[in-house]
Nucleic acid binder design. Structure first.
Lengths: 113, 113
DNA sequence: TACATTGTTCGATGTTTCACGAACGTAGAA
DNA sequence: TTCTACGTTCGTGAAACATCGAACAATGTA
């Protein structure tokens, strides 16, 4: 299983990021990843089938919002906060703040919490 | 022609705003309206048919991004900056800054510019 | 009244998005 | 090698979206 493609910082587009964050499940994933730690795929809990979760993680990755690393058969996901902040200053914080206030994507979480 | 419906500030949702700003034409309109002045409908120039422009302005209005006022047969549109800033601090500026840097919606403009 | 202007709405069309289960490929375990 | 666990990809379907031109409604003008 080869490492998945990721956009370089300059390939990250506003349209792509806005599109990626225009879904409550993906905003929920964003909130989970906002602790800036790497999380295992299997640790993630979302109210969708695993194929759908894979799809959403792919959308986030392709947009440059997250980075996915493969290790054996396991995957680890993390937020590309530095790249996003460099590219679109303030955007991530604004979305995270708004998502927290409106409690968007609340049904997404981590195992055992 | 009665005045169109607008969401109250508390009815403005992050999901709605993100969805509204997830289209280059609408981001272009946002940039045009970012001067915080009221603009006449007929003043707006976008690379779409007038029925499509009407549709986009409706999406922005329904999301709470803009306010539309009717005066006779004419319409005037303005950005609801205060409401958006109160609801989602920093979001509008972040999007406007990013849109400017990436030149999103550049084909939208005003007549005579 | 009749006509022109302005923007909205309708109906049709093609595209994109999100969802699922099934099938698949890769890597490690037995 | 065979089996199991982990995620991805495929095929499909339903819904939402963007787009257009035509028809429409509301207002102002002749």
């Amino acid at each position: 299983m080869k490492q998945a493609w990721h956009p370089t910082p300059s390939e990250i587009t506003l349209t792509g990021v806005m599109g990626a964050l225009n879904d409550p499940v993906r905003v929920g994933l964003l909130r989970v990843l906002a602790d800036d730690r790497e999380h295992g795929w299997s640790e993630l809990r979302a109210p969708v089938a695993k194929s759908t979760l894979s799809y959403h993680l792919r959308v986030l990755r392709d947009a440059g919002v997250t980075r996915t690393r493969q290790e054996g058969t396991r995957c680890f996901v993390e937020l590309r906060r530095d790249d996003l902040d460099a590219r679109f200053p303030g955007l991530l914080d604004a979305v995270l703040g708004a998502a927290h206030r409106d409690d968007i994507g609340a049904r997404v979480g981590l195992a055992g919490t």
